[in-house]
């Protein structure tokens, strides 16, 4: 049973002429780090939405094929169940953080799952430790750098304890020091056994990848060194 499995996936957004995903197949092993490359607009984010359930639960379109996490079909899963299996960090830090303090931000997910307070406290502490931001627990995300915001975004997903992590170009708006720290965190997560999908457009960020794939004309193929 694969943590992530896409079988013959086709997807077309409402009002669009062509399939943005045109027969995608992918199986990711437990603990594997898979990088996905592709030009801007090639459908990388769309592919992520298929792996975290935003398609078909939030974004609508014509979908066929299957998208499975640990063998269950995302289509039939509830948001709460998906959230504890797949965590997603998005490209833009400013459209995924919304709480007045770092602590509130990280507590948000577990609160939605009705987890009890003591456990939430433990999870906040552990998530902050994993991203090395323990000192910023009571800070306001507004006052952090872009790189630090992404670390908090990672932490606020980790508090849901998902086994699969999807990082959709999370370093594209971040300066060099920020990137270095994020890469360190990704290395730590890999060591702790998480299965990771990282969408990238920068070839320098692929150090941790076990496998590199590329989206081309709606198909996912092995990367051979050229885009």
């Amino acid at each position: 049973m694969f943590p992530v499995e896409l079988k013959n996936l086709y997807f077309k957004y409402v009002g669009k002429q062509t399939n943005i995903l045109d027969g995608v197949n992918l199986a990711i092993n437990k603990g594997e780090v898979v990088a996905i490359l592709g030009l801007s607009g090639s459908g990388k984010s769309t592919l992520c939405y298929c792996m975290n359930g935003l398609i078909p639960h939030v974004y609508k379109g014509e979908l066929s094929g299957e998208s499975l996490v640990f063998g269950s079909c995302l289509k039939n899963m509830k948001i709460a169940d998906i959230a504890t299996k797949v965590g997603t960090v998005f490209q833009d830090p400013d459209t995924q953080l919304f709480s007045p303090t770092v602590e509130d931000e990280i507590a948000f997910g577990p609160e939605n799952l009705c987890i009890d307070r003591e456990e939430i406290g433990r999870r906040i502490a552990s998530a902050l430790e994993q991203v090395g931001m323990t000192n910023h627990r009571l800070a306001s995300p507004d006052h952090l750098s872009g790189g630090q915001k992404q670390l908090i975004a990672i932490a606020s997903v980790l508090s849901l304890q998902p086994e699969v992590l999807i990082f959709d170009e999370i370093m594209s708006q971040i300066d060099e020091t920020g990137k270095t720290r994020i890469k360190e965190v990704i290395r730590g997560l890999k060591k702790s056994g998480k299965t990771i999908v990282m969408v990238e457009h920068n070839l320098d960020n692929l150090d941790e990848a076990d496998r590199v794939m590329v989206i081309l004309k709606g198909k996912l193929i092995n990367f051979t060194g050229k885009l």
Binding site: Y59, F90, F98, E103, E111, N112, C114, V157, L160
Partner: peptide, 19 residues
């Protein structure tokens, strides 16, 4: 923002706890 909240289980249940 709504999508990000959704992936973090917003509105999973009619109730939620509060830290």
């Amino acid at each position: 923002l709504a999508a990000a909240m959704e992936t973090r289980a917003f509105r999973a249940y009619p109730q939620r706890t509060s830290y």
